[in-house]
Amino acid sequence: MNFIPILLTAVLLGTAHAASPVQTKGSAVTIDLIAGQGSTNGGLNFNGGARGDRTFTVPLGATVTVKFKNMGIMPHSFVIRQGGAAPTDADASDAVFTSGYAPAKVEAGIRPGATTQVVFKASKAGSYYFVCGVPGHAMGGQYIRLVVSKAATVASFK
C-alpha cells in the first residue's frame, strides 16, 4: 500500500479550508474578530473585510463571546453599532449591546499583537456593524457587518 499519495491528498485537502472565525455550541457563539488581518484596505480591516463587505451572523438570543486580536501594525478597537449608512466614527456610547465594545477606551485601541475579550447577549435582532473606534479608521472603511437573526440556528461568517 502506498501511503505517500494518501498523505499528500490529506495535507492538500486540509490546507484548502481555513478554520472558521465563528463557532456555535448550543446557545453560545464565539467570534474570533481580527483587526488588521493582511493588507486589505491598507490594514484597516476586520478578518480581511472592509467597508461592510463581510458579515458575521449570529442567532437571536445567543450569548456571544468576541475574542478580539490586533494583528495589524497600529492600534485597533471595535464597537458594535447600529447598521445603516456607512459609519464614519464610533465610541463606546454607540454600542448597541452592553459590553459590545473593546477596549474601554475605544479611541486608543489595543496595541499590535494584543488580545482582549468581551461577552454580550445578542438580544436585539437587526443589522449592525463592527466598527473600529480609533479616530479615522471607520472613515477609512474599517467596519464589517453583524446580523443578529431570528432565523439563524448557528453562527456564520461570509
Rank of each mutant, 00 (worst) to 15 (best):
T65I: 04
T153P: 02
A104K: 14
K158D: 15
V96E: 12
G140H: 03
I6Q: 14
L44F: 14
G48F: 04
A35G: 13
I73H: 15
G61Y: 12
A86R: 00
A152Q: 05
G38M: 05
V154I: 08
G36F: 13
A155R: 04
N41Y: 11
P21D: 11
V22M: 01
F3W: 14
Q82T: 04
P59R: 04
D91N: 15
T98L: 10
F120T: 03
P135T: 00
S39Y: 08
F157K: 05
A92H: 02
G61R: 13
A86V: 00
G38Y: 09
I4N: 10
F130E: 06
F130V: 05
P103Q: 00
V64N: 03
S93Q: 06
G26N: 11
T30F: 12
K105F: 07
P5L: 05
T15S: 13
K25H: 13
V96T: 05
S27F: 10
L60N: 12
I110Q: 08
F68R: 09
T15E: 13
V154G: 01
F78Q: 03
L146T: 10
A50H: 15
S93V: 01
A86H: 03
G49P: 09
S156V: 02
V118P: 06
G61W: 09
S77P: 10
M74S: 15
G61T: 12
G72T: 03
I144C: 00
T15Y: 13
T9K: 03
P135M: 04
G49W: 01
F56D: 12
T153E: 08
A151R: 06
Q117S: 14
G83L: 04
L44H: 11
F97R: 02
C132E: 06
A122T: 02
I34S: 03
A155N: 01
G52L: 02
V119N: 10
D89K: 09
F46G: 00
S77E: 03
L146S: 11
R81N: 10
Y129K: 01
H17G: 07
T15M: 10
R51P: 00
P5R: 02
G133Q: 00
S20L: 10
I4E: 13
L8A: 15
G136P: 05
L8M: 11
A152G: 12
V118K: 11
I80K: 07
G36Q: 08
Y143S: 00
N45H: 08
Q37L: 10
T98Q: 15
Q117K: 11
G49H: 03
A92I: 07
P21V: 04
L60V: 04
A104L: 08
A35L: 01
R81G: 15
G61M: 12
S123D: 15
A102W: 04
C132S: 07
L13T: 13
A62T: 07
A19R: 04
G113S: 07
T9C: 10
K121F: 07
T30L: 11
M71S: 15
L44K: 09
Y129L: 02
F56K: 08
V96I: 01
L60A: 13
F68P: 12
G26I: 03
A138L: 02
G43F: 11
Y129H: 06
S93E: 07
M71Y: 09
G109K: 06
V119M: 10
L8P: 07
T115S: 15
T9E: 09
H17F: 15
V79F: 03
V64T: 06
F68V: 11
G113T: 09
V119E: 15
R51L: 07
E107Q: 14
K67I: 06
A138T: 00
V134T: 02
G48C: 11
